[in-house]
Simulated assay, not measured.
Amino acid sequence: MIPVYSPDLRGNERRYADDAVATSWISSLGPYIDRFETALRDTIGTRHVVAVSNGTVALHLALHCLDVGPGDEVIVPTFTYIASVNAIKQTGATPVLADVRPQDWLLDPDQVEALITPRTKAIMPVHLYSGVCDSRINEIARSNGIKIVEDCAEVLGTRIGDHHVGTTADVATFSFFGNKTITTGEGGAVATNDDALALRLRKVKGQGQSLTRRYWHDELGFNYRMTNICAAIGTAQMERIDSILDRKSRIASMYRDALGGSGVEFQSVAPYVKSSEWLVTLLLPKGADRDQVMAGLTDLGIDTRPVFFCAHQMPMYRSDKPYPVAEDITARGISLPSYPGLSDDQVAQVSDALLKVLAQRDVAVA
């Protein structure tokens, strides 16, 4: 079976993790934390990067430290991984769901403008799969005095012109789960250029303990710290980020070339964006039965994934309000094997298999 994703751990990951164990630095202190944060700062380009235990707590920590809470509203796309919405709810604020654009599947700036109220405290653009949100969202936020929290969980390594995604936001968050471009097993990070905010992020992630006085806790905090073992894996990963990104770019280009003209629709990426191509994702032709397509690919030894369900389709966020673009995407989208260890022959195998399955009569809905 060709998996959708498998981490590339062929560098110094085991050696560094063994070193963390051998030196007894296994918890949230140790040299690899500093090394990993430094490598991330060098890649992202913000003044500060704070490593945390996963991407979801990175979002919650960012919102909390921007004082988002009860009575506030945060605009977020309904088409996103549920962590984006859950993190808002966990602060006591209200997630305000917006539809996405058909070309890039990302937060629609026109919807954002229409949803702003006096209670809007923040906007959360979520960069999904290969795409990057329209920078007009940040301009809308600045002109209205609203904070921007960019969910960059899937786009480490993506650049917009000469700068890394997330660097123009008040704060950006990243994930290093096992299926991300760079992994620490479980892990995340918060990036910002705001010196005062960075200090608060560091303090609050460690139970609100003073950074200068041990066991003195003068504000509410959380245990969101990354372990030195996870950071050791991440440090080794960051040593090879350029080669990993190059390989993923090659894989995405091969898929687009092989499947062009087949009736599938790829996510639009602006020409000034250099995408990290996290997970190659496409929309099946209208009328195709996605479950049958995925089952057919499984029979041919190829694993796939459906795209995320919309937040407004979940029981806790259920809404009868229509979100037609997001609903269409979530009904037709699938992700193909996209891990950096995928060979050219395997990319061709997956492409040929998809074309074969799409040609079968039983994948079409009557």
Rank of each mutant, 00 (worst) to 15 (best):
P7K: 10
P7L: 12
R10E: 09
N12A: 05
N12F: 00
E13G: 00
R15Y: 03
Y16Q: 10
A17V: 15
D18N: 13
I26R: 13
T38M: 06
R41N: 05
D42W: 11
T46E: 14
V52T: 15
S53F: 02
G55M: 14
H60G: 04
A62L: 05
L63P: 04
L63C: 12
L66E: 09
L66I: 09
D67I: 13
D67F: 09
V68C: 13
A83W: 05
V85G: 03
N86G: 08
Q90G: 15
Q90T: 15
T91G: 03
P102T: 05
P102A: 12
L106M: 04
Q111W: 02
L115Q: 10
L115M: 09
T117D: 07
K121H: 02
L128K: 02
S135P: 06
I137Q: 04
N138Q: 13
N138P: 02
N144F: 07
E150S: 13
C152M: 13
L156I: 14
D162L: 09
T167L: 10
F176D: 09
G178R: 14
N179W: 07
G185D: 07
E186G: 08
G187P: 08
G188I: 14
A189Q: 15
A191S: 14
A191D: 10
L199M: 13
R200N: 04
K205H: 06
G206L: 08
S210T: 13
T212F: 08
D218F: 06
G221H: 00
M226F: 10
T227L: 03
T227W: 01
C230I: 11
I233T: 11
T235R: 08
T235G: 05
A236M: 11
D242F: 08
L245G: 14
D246I: 15
R247C: 15
A252V: 08
R256L: 02
G261T: 10
S262T: 15
V269H: 01
Y272I: 05
V273F: 00
W278V: 03
W278T: 06
L279Y: 03
V280M: 13
L283F: 04
K286W: 04
D289M: 03
V293S: 10
A295Y: 01
A295P: 00
L300R: 15
L300F: 11
G301R: 12
P306V: 11
F309L: 09
A311F: 07
A311L: 12
P315Q: 11
S319N: 03
S319F: 01
D320R: 12
P322A: 08
V325F: 05
A331I: 14
A331G: 12
G333M: 10
L336N: 08
Y339C: 02
Y339M: 03
A348L: 08
V350S: 12
S351P: 09
S351Y: 04
V365R: 15
